[in-house]
Computed example of a mutant assay.
Amino acid sequence: MNLLHRRICRSDSWALRMHSQVLPWACKAVPLDGDVLEIGPGYGVTTRWLLDQGAHVTAVEVDPDLAGGLRREFDGRVDVHTGDGAALPFPDGSFDTVVCFTMLHHVPSPGHQDRMFAEVARVLRPGGTFAGSDSRVNLRFRLLHIGDTMVAVDPGALPDRLRAAGLEDVDVDVVPRSLRFRATRG
């Protein structure tokens, strides 16, 4: 992430927007009281919210510095792993729920995103839920990502991609700035 993007993602205003608007919308009717895997928590804004919902959280963060910051901040309350969401270090069927928020566009290619979706399906328990959100492309979003990885997710193609990964009961909702998705493992 570029410097401006990092600053925004650490800000109180970003945390307020995520906690009051995006996360309640993205997680409506998503079970968060069991074993929850969060992929790409970044600075932990979403992780704090998940803990407040009663989740037992495991996090996988690709950036070693951010993962270290999460370990220090959560001091054992979250099991933090440094790694790639497309190569998860967990046995099959390890989690009740897997979530990711505003991070899919940072995954370097659609193929890499698809490998992540397949890994999510693998580590979910039967009947488990994959849910999350991501930003939609607009001018502000493009400007914020100058010098960053930005591989926007096409909400129209996402249902087929999630099904191809082995998920079912796929639902994708779109609002002007964001998309949310839910799917289950059969």
Rank of each mutant, 00 (worst) to 15 (best):
R77A: 15
D63M: 10
V98I: 13
F95R: 01
A55Y: 09
F130C: 11
L143G: 04
V107R: 03
G128C: 05
L50I: 09
L4I: 13
M18W: 04
D171W: 06
G127Y: 07
M18G: 00
R136D: 07
G34D: 05
F141Y: 13
A59T: 09
A131G: 03
R6F: 08
C100T: 15
D84S: 02
R136E: 02
T46Q: 08
E73F: 02
G128S: 07
V99W: 05
V36M: 07
G83Y: 07
V151W: 00
G69D: 10
D154P: 05
E38D: 10
R48T: 15
G132H: 07
H19N: 09
F130N: 06
G44M: 06
D173Q: 10
D52V: 02
P24N: 14
E38W: 00
L4Q: 10
R163P: 03
R177N: 06
M116F: 12
P89D: 11
A26M: 08
I39N: 12
T82G: 00
D65G: 08
P91H: 14
G147P: 09
S94E: 03
G111Y: 11
G127R: 13
A26F: 02
L162K: 01
E73Q: 14
F130K: 01
V137G: 04
V175N: 09
L179V: 10
G147Q: 08
V80Q: 08
R7N: 11
L32M: 03
C27H: 08
L158V: 01
D96K: 00
A118Q: 09
V175H: 10
A157C: 01
L51H: 04
V45S: 12
E119Y: 12
P41R: 11
V45R: 04
R180N: 02
G40P: 01
V80R: 02
P24G: 13
S11A: 06
R122C: 04
D96H: 15
R161D: 00
A118S: 13
P89A: 13
I146E: 02
S13A: 12
T102W: 10
A165G: 07
R140S: 13
A87P: 01
H112F: 06
L51N: 09
R115K: 14
W14C: 03
H81N: 04
W49C: 08
F181V: 00
F74N: 05
A152N: 02
D35M: 10
A152W: 12
D114W: 00
K28C: 13
M103I: 14
C100N: 14
F95Y: 14
L32G: 06
R10M: 05
L167G: 07
D12Q: 14
P89V: 10
S11R: 06
V174S: 07
V30F: 03
A67F: 09
D84V: 07
I39K: 04
V170A: 06
P91N: 11
G40K: 03
L179F: 10
R163V: 09
L144V: 09
D169F: 11
L162E: 02
V60E: 04
T82M: 03
H56E: 11
V99N: 05
D84L: 09
G186F: 14
G132T: 05
D75H: 03
H56R: 15
D12M: 13
G111T: 11
L32F: 04
R136V: 04
V137A: 12
N2H: 06
A67R: 02
D12E: 15
T129C: 08
V172W: 08
S109M: 11
A55M: 05
D63Y: 12
S13H: 07
D33M: 13
D63F: 04
R163K: 11
G68Q: 12
Q113M: 08
V99P: 01
A157T: 14
